[in-house]
Design a protein around this nucleic acid. Structure first.
Lengths: 237, 237
DNA sequence: GCGCAAATAATCGTATACAATTTGATCGCC
DNA sequence: GGCGATCAAATTGTATACGATTATTTGCGC
């Protein structure tokens, strides 16, 4: 995330308690796909990795399980979430349900400086698309999500913002699991079109574009049920 | 919650780990208003109360803070959340944003047995309204929320269901703080009207009624900013 | 009597220790 | 050689202990 986006998206105080730092670090790793779905996150390993005790590692993993990014199984341990096709559909259904509303709210309150900010985000995004390398790909994934999160931030409803953060992060997991094309961003500049519609005060069109945008992302997924998924999962590890 | 509602709303496995039991117990106490906003929840006290160590008490409080029902202040402790007027507005804005969508989804998938279930819920609710006593009041509060939660459950989207659980619980806190009339349920049987509209397959009307219903609840609040709120809070303790 | 400072008490933040459960392996038996 | 039971290793669940931070009270000076 670039610092400009950071300014709009972060609302927390500077002093984070240890567990939160670890939680954020692991979350970033999951969202940027450095950690694959199903990966085991043992409390000891996490603790050693960050040089803290199991207490903090456990707290971080618990927090991530509330966000749906990690699934903790009683007496078995924590794993990077492995969302089922049905779960994936629910995530995108939720996004289709709430993002139009967020968009309308955001469009009603948006300032010219915030529009500029969005445009700057798009510029950064397209620059990353043209770049090569794993680092650029990861940054692109994050930037793509930041567009939606920034809209939520502009809407001014911190509750919906937090909910969108969860949905965007989980979407990243779903795309990592079921995405077909190498990169989810379509050839069309759909984010840019949405900003243009907002700028033109054409809310209906903006919502329409948003719904299509979400549909496009979902269309790139292969959500067919794997037969014996539980078994396959074990083999793939 | 009666056992019938329980059958539709609960999705968890029977064996809960200790912290979850404590979390649920405290959440119920908050939602049923046995715990007032601002009440201090010290880790030691909670632990002693449930005969567990601070570790579990802390985990439960952390979980509740993720749900927005408890606010933990670094090095100061945990308190039953004391939502600001602005926060209250955001909670209801979020409900206006998502409940129509949930309602449409639920109406599309609802079965006759689920409609019967809803009607039974309404019956129970009206019975509680006519009854006297604190116990009945608490049950009524819960029943009123269960109507919205049951709709979310019927919608089939567990993610939206969980989000609604959070919003309904936080709404209870807001009403406890800012509600003016002794009881939030209006004279009109608004829940019943919504079910009727669903039954008649008149979705637009059902959504319209839902929005009005939420607006009515919000209209009963006095969300004017209290001057010196922080001080007042201290005195009220 | 009032205000300020230092000591005291209470509470949280984190680490470590022990108990319980699960997983994997070794050994014996069929 | 295959199968089952028992045992060992690893991991989680929970409790306790200690250090750090904050709130309170006490005592002194004015």
């Amino acid at each position: 995330m670039n610092s400009a986006a950071n300014a709009l998206l972060t609302t927390e105080e500077p002093t984070e308690t240890g567990a939160q730092q670890i939680r954020d670090a692991i979350r970033d790793a999951i969202v940027e796909r450095r950690l694959s779905p199903g990966t085991k996150l043992s409390e000891s390993d996490v603790g050693n990795l960050f040089n803290v005790s199991r207490t903090l590692a456990r707290a971080a993993l618990q927090a991530l399980s509330y966000e749906g990014l990690v699934s903790v199984e009683k007496n078995r341990g924590a794993f990077v979430a492995y969302p089922s096709p049905d779960e994936a559909r629910q995530i995108f259904a939720a996004r289709r349900l709430i993002e139009p509303g967020i968009l309308r709210e955001a469009a009603a309150r948006i300032t010219t400086s915030e529009i500029q900010h969005l445009r700057q985000l798009l510029l950064e995004e397209s620059r990353l698309i043209s770049e090569r390398g794993q680092t650029a790909r990861r940054a692109e994934i994050k930037a793509s999500g930041d567009f939606h999160l920034t809209l939520a931030a502009i809407s001014g409803n911190t509750i919906m913002q937090r909910f969108m953060e969860e949905l965007v992060a989980r979407s990243s997991l779903v795309i990592a699991l079921y995405g077909q094309s190498t990169i989810s961003s379509c050839g069309h500049n759909e984010h840019g079109d949405i900003v243009s519609a907002i700028e033109a005060k054409d809310l209906d069109r903006a919502c329409h574009l948003m719904l299509h945008h979400i549909a496009h992302i979902e269309a790139d997924l292969d959500l067919r049920e794997r037969k014996g998924q539980g078994l396959k999962e074990a083999f793939d590890l």
